[in-house]
Design a binder for these strands. Structure first.
Lengths: 148, 148
DNA sequence: TATTGTTATACTCTATAACTATA
DNA sequence: TATAGTTATAGAGTATAACAATA
């Protein structure tokens, strides 16, 4: 290859790129088919579900998802029009808007998440030995930390 | 969680989704900054470089990249206008078009690939022990095979 | 003055459908 | 008739800039 990468490294590189690309594709297709959701919309729902009744400020959510505020406004409007989330003025800062998941949104999110996990299970979890799964978990956590 | 997934599995799931999302983001940003290339355009270049002088038929390339033919035509036109690839009628099938990488395109591709590998090295390869790298390589190859 | 959030706008990417040319 | 490839077109998603409201 003559690119300053060993065959061993290249194999790991190629496996990572291929598997993550294909997985991303399968996950996005599943979200679209299940509930016509994009990846970003799904992440909005997961974050709001985690926050519970407290909700999350728009600016905070945009930072967490690494999207522009205008882009977040667009996606949040989509979910709001479907009745899955709400937006309210913040109590302590009149400039702020707090987004919250609705009971309907939470029910849908749970259903979608279950299907989502099934995709991950079939293509990932079921393919690994327990020891491999442990190694991957700790190694990929380190990779994610490095990238954050 | 009550979603039919064990804490151990959830940890592996979360690490995989987080690391692959962040890596994809880093890779795409790097390609854009280095040479204003999209992921698809980069994959076109890599495939054509692999094929060498023989080139690849458009229909074949579209199948390999899992994109529509019209979408491929658009991206190929972008690369062609920059002089990185060419399109010629196929010799044996007058309906066919064969895409090939140009010497300029190959030089650029090598440069971009080197930078791309650097990103992967910093965020992935450098973070792993040799034993972890071996485990990840074989495990993720199995994941990719499952998804194909 | 600085920050929050939305909107107007423009741009990129992708796909479907219509079309031409060849098998 | 079927296949290869392109083009016209439309739609989704994202970002920048301008704006109104509040700190």
């Amino acid at each position: 290859m003559a690119t300053g990468i060993t065959p061993d490294e290249f194999r790991a590189y190629a496996a990572l790129i291929a598997s993550s690309t294909l997985l991303q594709r399968a996950v996005e297709q599943n979200l679209r088919e299940q509930a016509d959701l994009t990846q970003v919309q799904f992440e909005i729902l997961m974050n709001l579900a985690n926050a519970g009744g407290a909700g999350i400020r728009m600016a905070h959510l945009a930072d967490a998802l690494i999207v522009s505020r205008s882009g977040l406004s667009y996606q949040v409007a989509q979910l709001e029009s479907r009745g899955w989330i709400t937006r309210e003025r913040s109590a302590d800062d009149e400039r702020g808007i707090v987004a919250r998941i609705t009971p309907l949104g939470e029910r849908m999110r749970q259903r979608v998440f279950a299907g989502h996990v099934e995709v991950v299970r079939r293509s990932f979890l079921d393919v690994l030995e327990p020891a491999e799964r442990k190694t991957l978990a700790s190694a990929l956590e380190r990779v994610a930390d490095r990238l954050r």
